[in-house]
Structure formats: C-alpha cells, structure tokens
Amino acid sequence: MNDQAFYPIGTPGQPWGAAEKADWLSRQVRRRSYADEVVSVIERLRPRFDVEEYGRLQYGGESFPLFAIRSRDWNGDRPLALVTGGVHGYETSGVHGALRFVDKHADDFAGRIDLLIAPCVSPWAYERIHRWNPDAIDPNRSFRENSPAGESAALMQLIAPARERIVMHIDLHETTDTDESEFRPALAARDGKPFEPDGVPDGFYLVDDSERPQPAFQQAVIEAVSKITHIAPADADGQIIGSPVVAPGVIRYPLAKLGLCAGMTDAPYKTTTEVYPDSPRATPEQCNAAQAAAVCAALEYVLAHR
C-alpha cells in the first residue's frame, strides 16, 4: 500500500505545500463545542479559583479565548506547579482530566504550592477532534522560541513571568487508535515521508525527560494511576511507541529538543501522561480520573521531596 492509498492528500514523497494544507483544512469539521464543554466548566470554577484569559486565537471568522486557572491563595514566594491539557485538542481526557483535578482535588493543595492550570491549550483542535491547528502545525512540537503555533506561543508567554518558580510540570495527553489510523499517516503525508505503522499501547504510560530523568517521580505517578486503570505493557521488543521501556509504563524523550510542551520549562520534575481511551478495559470516567490522579500523585511527590 503506498502513501497516497493510505492518506488522500498530497503526492507520496513530496511535502505538502499551501494547496495541500488548504485541502486538508477544508476537510476539517467542527464536531463539538469548546464553549459548551470546556468554557462553561471553567466559568463554574470562578467562585473558587482565579481565572484569567491569557490569549485569544483568531482562526478565520472564529475567536477562541484561552483560559488559565490559578490558586485563589496565589503566593509568589511558594514553588509553582504547572498542569497543562489539550495541547492536542482531540485528547479529551487531557482537557477534562485537568478540569476534574481543579474541581475535585486542587483545594487539597491550598497553602502548600501555587497551581497554574491551562486545561485546553488548543481549542480549535478540541472542536475538530484533531491533533494539529488550522495551519497543519502540531503545537506539541512547537514549544520553542518564535513558535509557529499560536497555541504554544500563548502558553509560553503566560508562564514567562513565573518560569523560574516552576518546580513541576505535568502535561496530560492520550494515545488513541486514531493516532495510527489518521494522525500518523497525515503526518507522514504532510512531511513527504513514508508511513511506518506502529502499535497503539493498551494502557496508561508516562514520558520522562531523557535529559534530566526522574525515575522515582515517574514511578510514584504510575503507582497512583495503576489503582484506577491499567498500565501499558512493553511490546515484544521491550518498547512503547518505538521507545525503550525504562520502568513499568515509562519511556523517555528529549522533551525540550523535540519542542514538547513538557520541555518548555526547566522544572526539575516533569512528565507527559498518556491515557488509552480506546481500550475495552477503560471508560471515559476512568481516563479522566487517571489524569487527575496523576496530577495529585505528582504534586504529593514533589511536596514530599523538596
């Protein structure tokens, strides 16, 4: 099967130009409402937390406000923990897991650590259930200076004044069946490369920073999440998504080098969660709960080891 048979846009071996990107964009359909499903939840949290609009994305005739949630008792002398979700808009539990954490658990950390939560970094992609923004750019490869992605640039600007205080950053993601059926083939087509099929791991896993690994921190998160949903096993080659498994449910990437969200700070503790919502062994409720549990475990570990 050649690339063209696998993905309907572009010419195999040739990166997309403006025409192919416009073709791709014309096929994107709004499937759900950021205002109804995300902003409305944030609004209900305003009586208990400080909410700010940290940016606004303009795409065509659409405008998307970007919201961050802060601890009500914010104290600039305390360490700061950053929670991000929805960098890939289609990864639903990243968004709703972050909001669940705020609603059900953030109060438990009042007075102990400052919290900054950006629950839906990519609202246009949330509505289209997609990985990219309208320019066919992946925000989660764009956390670098002069970012080509407005989503990434806005988030980096938000954290800039407090960047040195950030001791922990947990970025909430999912790995889905559509990664293999849609998003990886689209990426290969966009970049003019052959699509190389891989597997989709069945279960939860974490991505640590290969430049500054924190194995005990990762393991604390895995242990907490394992009480809610199953942890992804290694494949026959001892890998998860092509990377060696260094501990149960843990792989490592060079986060900053790849422009990943979890690599945009120098926080000593950082991780990317990956839930598998398409598993027959997991429900949407479990996925959201697993994300919230991961945040809680990460925070408790950091507080206990500072």
Rank of each mutant, 00 (worst) to 15 (best):
Thr176Met: 04
Trp16Pro: 02
Ile228Val: 15
Ala110His: 07
Ser181Leu: 07
Thr272Glu: 08
Pro47Asn: 03
Ala293Asp: 01
Val102His: 01
Met1Tyr: 04
Glu151Cys: 07
Glu274His: 11
Gln214Leu: 07
Arg252Glu: 04
Pro134Lys: 07
Ala293Ser: 14
Leu45Ser: 13
Val200Trp: 01
Glu37Asn: 14
Gly10Asn: 02
Gly61Phe: 10
Val221Lys: 09
Cys261Ile: 00
Phe101Gln: 03
Pro139Ala: 05
Asp266Thr: 15
Ala125Pro: 04
Asp202Met: 14
Gly94Trp: 02
Ala304Thr: 11
Lys193Trp: 08
Trp24Gly: 03
Ser71Cys: 10
Arg144Trp: 04
Pro244Asp: 08
Arg30Trp: 09
Phe183Ala: 08
Thr229Ala: 13
Asp114Gln: 06
Pro268Asp: 10
His105Ser: 11
Ser181Cys: 05
Cys120Gly: 05
Glu20Trp: 13
Pro284Gly: 15
Gly13Ala: 06
Pro248Gly: 09
Arg31Ala: 08
Ile117Asp: 06
Leu80Ser: 07
Asp171Tyr: 03
Thr178Met: 09
Arg72His: 13
Asp73Val: 13
Gly238Thr: 10
Pro148Ile: 10
Glu196Arg: 15
Ala160Asn: 06
Leu80Thr: 15
Gly263Val: 10
Gly242Ser: 00
Ser279Glu: 00
Ile159Cys: 01
Pro215Glu: 15
Val39Tyr: 04
Ser122Val: 06
Val51Cys: 14
Ile42Thr: 14
Arg112Cys: 01
Ile170Asn: 06
Pro161Gln: 08
Ile251Phe: 04
His105Met: 07
Asp171Cys: 00
Phe64Arg: 01
Gln239Thr: 15
Glu43Ala: 14
Tyr269Ser: 05
Ala216Asp: 15
Ser226Phe: 06
Arg30His: 12
Pro244Ile: 09
Ile117Ala: 06
Asp23Arg: 12
Gly238Ser: 07
